[in-house]
Each structure stands twice: as structure tokens, then as C-alpha cells.
Computed example of a mutant assay.
Amino acid sequence: MDPVAVPSPAQGPVIPDFGGGGCPNDATFCWSWVRENWGSQLVPHLVQHIYITAIAVMIGLVISLAAAVLAYRLSWFEKGFMAFSTVLYTIPALAFFLFFVPITGLSLLTVEIGLVGYTFLLLFRNTLTGLRSVPPGAMAAAAGMGMTPREIFLRINLPLAVPSIMAGARIATVTVISLATIAADVTPLGLGELIFTALHTVFRTELIAAGALAILLALVADALLVLAQRAATPWIRVRRGRTA
């Protein structure tokens, strides 16, 4: 049997190659790895991250909106849900995710339960604040025009609360995007999977690329929500134009 070949010290240290056109482990950033892995690694994980975030924010928004409507009409419900959402928000993210692992396993459901829980405080508080910030004069004028309480809520309270609701949605979305990276330590999904893999292999290019995409996603999502708010509240632009 031939002896195992051992590289001589004269050959120098062996630097791992991560399949990116000869990108060495000690390189700060390697564009060739990004180009070669853009379609096979970065984009699929970015799409997963968007999917995870969208589900959590949408479910959180529906639950928080329903809870805010109840709290708007039933004052005793506000304290209970506010305390519940505050407790959830103060739990460390990784501990929150791991708490549900024995129940739902290492699955997307586990991640979504945790992420949705973190949206409650932000969305509920902003929605309730928006509903209560409607000028009493506007509600009295609507009642004087013969609107029913339901019509006043749907046509006056809810539209005027949109800016506050969208502000909460912006904060919740950015929060979920960041926490979804931590959730990858429980279930390997999204950009967090690439980040944790890069941390274990000390591959800076993958770490920087995945982290930059997460930051860019948060900025783009926030900008899109700002545009959505402006489209949903055209009267604000009209009012600002008159006062300018």
C-alpha cells in the first residue's frame, strides 16, 4: 500500500476553496463567488426570506387589527392583550423559537409562530392609537349625516387610522426580517441559513453577501410600505399641498 501523501512545508498552507472561482477563505470579499452562486444560493434564500416575512406580517396584521377593534370597543380587552403582546416581545428570539420546537418540531410553523408573536405589540398598539386619534368632530359630522356606527368605523375611523397602522407595519416588517435570520438557527431557511453557514466556515464573502441582502431587503420593504401608505391616503397629499 502506498503511504498517504503529505504536502511538504515548502508547498505552503492549504487554503480552502469554496467553489467560487478560486476564492480563498481569507479573502475579504469575492465577486466571482457571488456571480456563480447568485441563482443557485442567494436568490432562492432571498425568496424564502421574503416568503417567511410576508406570512408573519400578514398573519400578525390580521390578528392585531381584530384585537385592536375589540380593544377600541371593549376597554378591558386592551390591558389583557397589551400585557400578552408585551411579554411575547420581551422574550429573547432564539429562546422563543426553541420553546415551540418540542410542540411543532424544526419546521416553518415553529418559525412563523415566533415571528408572528413579535409583531403583535407593534401592530396592535399602532392600530389602536390610529383608531383613537380620529377627531371627534369628524365622527360627529358623520353621525349627523346619518351614518351608522359601523359605517363611521369603516369609512371614517379605519381610513384615518391607516398612517398609524402602516407605521406599525413598517417597524414590524423590518423587525421580522432581522429576526428571521436568527430563526435559521432553528430551521435552515432564508438568508439566515447562509449567514450561519458562513459563520461556521469563516467564509466572509457568503457572510457579507447574505447580510447585505438582508439589509437591502429591509430597506426595500420599508420603501414599498411608504409608497403603499401614500397610495392609500391620497387626502394627506392634498392637505399638505393646500398648506404648502
Rank of each mutant, 00 (worst) to 15 (best):
S107L: 01
Y118A: 03
L128Q: 01
A138S: 15
F124Q: 03
L108R: 09
L160D: 12
L154H: 12
I113C: 07
G137S: 13
T110F: 02
L154S: 13
L158T: 05
L109C: 09
L160P: 10
M145H: 04
G130L: 08
A142N: 08
R125M: 03
L121S: 04
T129F: 06
R150W: 15
M145D: 06
P135F: 10
I113T: 12
T148C: 12
T127N: 03
A143S: 12
V134D: 06
N157P: 02
I113S: 05
A140T: 08
L160F: 14
A142W: 01
E151H: 15
L108F: 09
M147H: 14
V116Y: 05
L109E: 13
T127M: 08
V111Y: 02
A142H: 05
R125H: 05
A138N: 14
T110V: 04
R150N: 14
V111Q: 01
G114I: 04
T127G: 01
M145Q: 06
F124T: 05
F153N: 07
P159E: 12
P149H: 11
L121R: 09
L154I: 13
L122D: 01
P136K: 14
L131Y: 13
L158Y: 04
T110P: 00
R155M: 08
I156R: 03
L115W: 00
T127H: 03
G130F: 02
V111S: 00
V111C: 01
P135T: 11
M147K: 14
R155P: 02
L123G: 00
E151I: 13
I156M: 06
G146N: 07
F124M: 06
R150G: 14
G146H: 09
A138D: 15
N126K: 10
T148V: 08
G146S: 08
V134P: 02
L160M: 15
M139A: 13
R132H: 10
L115P: 00
V111P: 00
L128V: 06
V111N: 00
M147E: 13
P149G: 10
T127R: 02
S133R: 11
N157K: 05
L122R: 05
T148F: 12
T110L: 01
L154A: 13
L108N: 06
T119S: 04
